[in-house]
């Protein structure tokens, strides 16, 4: 699988896919998409990168251990729930603010934070699985 063309294009493909996955994540609340799908796309991107350029390269590119990313995701998800607890409503009740940046109204909410958590858990978990399996190839 390590053809020159594949190895050359893989990083760009991965970057594009990750970018796309974030786009899918953020549009998720209003259009098809969301954390699960976005996470899977990003995880596939890293899996492709891993097949093309080796697991070590992916790990270096990720900087964090995939399971750490996954853990951070779970942390965000729980924090998103806790916010509403501090706000005096029930656990995981959605909270919304609509600040205006450069004249555009941006919707920020705890469900969005939660969805980011979902995204990170899926990216971390699945990438970890894929890399673990690919790594065996080398020995």
């Amino acid at each position: 699988m390590r053809t020159v063309i594949f190895r050359f294009t893989a990083p760009y493909l991965t970057a594009l896919m990750v970018l796309f996955s974030i786009f899918v994540l953020l549009r998720g609340h209003n259009d098809p998409g969301g954390g699960f799908i976005g996470g899977l796309i990003a995880a596939s991107a890293f899996a492709i990168y891993g097949i093309a350029c080796g697991v070590v390269a992916v790990r270096r590119a990720l900087w964090f251990h995939p399971m750490a990313i996954s853990g951070a995701g779970l942390f965000f998800a729980v924090v998103a729930g806790l916010f509403s607890l501090f706000a005096g409503t029930g656990f995981m009740t959605g909270l919304w603010i609509f600040p205006v940046f450069f004249g555009n109204e941006v919707a920020l909410s705890t469900p969005l934070l939660f969805d980011i958590g979902v995204y990170l858990v899926v990216v971390g978990g699945i990438t970890s699985i894929a890399l673990a399996l690919e790594e065996r190839d080398t020995d």
Binding site: G34, F36, V122, G125, I126, I129, A132, L133
Partner: peptide, 17 residues
């Protein structure tokens, strides 16, 4: 189903390993 798909994939990966 959406969550089920992801869960069953993780489960499948675990079984595979």
């Amino acid at each position: 189903i959406l969550t089920a798909i992801v869960i069953s994939f993780s489960f499948f990966a675990f079984l595979l390993v």
